[in-house]
């Protein structure tokens, strides 16, 4: 566990010593801020619903961009070999890197709290759905980070890692939006596979164990996948 934390700290620090972190955060805030506030005054409602509706889509390309380097960079430079010959377990490495990605997603969400605050000054904001939305957003960020870690473990090439991660995240986001293309027997299955569906539930302010369990399983499945990929590489 201490090893996991050490790797987590190092990876998180790595983000912030390079300009990438700040650029990604800026892009994220610009996109979410623009799409949220451009229609906010037209709807004239004191809630963050538009923000949370768009979040899965934004996350599905911002988070793979954050996580793409986690393994791919090490595999490319060869430092992976030095990392693996340190007395650490594979699971420590996967978990440490995943936590760093998830923590970065959470940090990225930090500045958006200002949206809620500023709205609460000009209108009567219901904090319940907002809190639910943030809990959902953190879970969603963690799940997408796990997907990104898995994608990154597959390849030496960061671009390939990014695109692979983005495709999986995009698919999970959009499954419940495109169910009408599928035969009626599988509609339910696809709706429940979709991350967008579970995120919407939570962001309405309903914290259901099923939705939490969904995100936990996605995280577990993809981290386990990354672990298997690492084992296969030896």
């Amino acid at each position: 566990m201490t090893r996991t934390l050490q790797i987590f700290k190092k990876e998180l620090k790595d983000y912030f010593v390079s300009p990438i972190a700040y650029i990604v955060i800026c892009i994220f805030l610009l996109i979410t801020g623009w799409f949220f506030f451009s229609t906010f005054f037209i709807f004239n409602q004191a809630n963050l619903r538009t923000f949370f509706t768009l979040l899965p889509l934004t996350f599905s390309f911002v988070i793979p961009a954050v996580t793409m380097r986690l393994f791919a960079e090490e595999l490319h430079s060869g430092s992976y070999e030095m990392l693996l010959t340190l007395p650490v377990k594979l699971s420590d490495i996967v978990l440490g890197k995943f936590l760093a990605g998830a923590a970065f997603a959470a940090i990225m969400l930090g500045p958006t709290l200002v949206y809620g605050l500023s709205i609460s000054f000009i209108g009567d904001l219901d904090w319940g759905p907002v809190a639910g939305g943030y809990i959902g957003a953190v879970l969603l960020g963690a799940a997408y980070s796990a997907i990104g870690v898995f994608a990154s473990s597959l390849t030496k090439n960061q671009i390939v890692a990014f695109i692979t991660g983005m495709v999986i995240c995009f698919a999970l986001t959009l499954f419940d939006k495109v169910v009408f293309f599928f035969p009626p027997q599988v509609v339910d299955v696809f709706t429940h596979i979709a991350a967008g569906y579970h995120f919407e539930n939570i962001s309405k302010g309903i914290l259901d164990t099923r939705d939490v369990l969904y995100f936990a399983s996605v995280i577990f499945a993809f981290l386990y996948g990354a672990h298997l990929v690492m084992q296969e590489k030896r």
Binding site: S77, S79, L86, P87
Partner: peptide, 28 residues
């Protein structure tokens, strides 16, 4: 076992001190 792979593939974006400090921590 201490191991130095060929051409020392170290992390690039880290100070020498920080790197050694990190390795010392991981080495327990």
């Amino acid at each position: 076992v201490g191991y130095l792979p060929e051409s020392a593939p170290l992390y690039h974006n880290i100070l020498v001190y920080d790197y050694l400090d990190y390795i010392a921590q991981v080495r327990g």
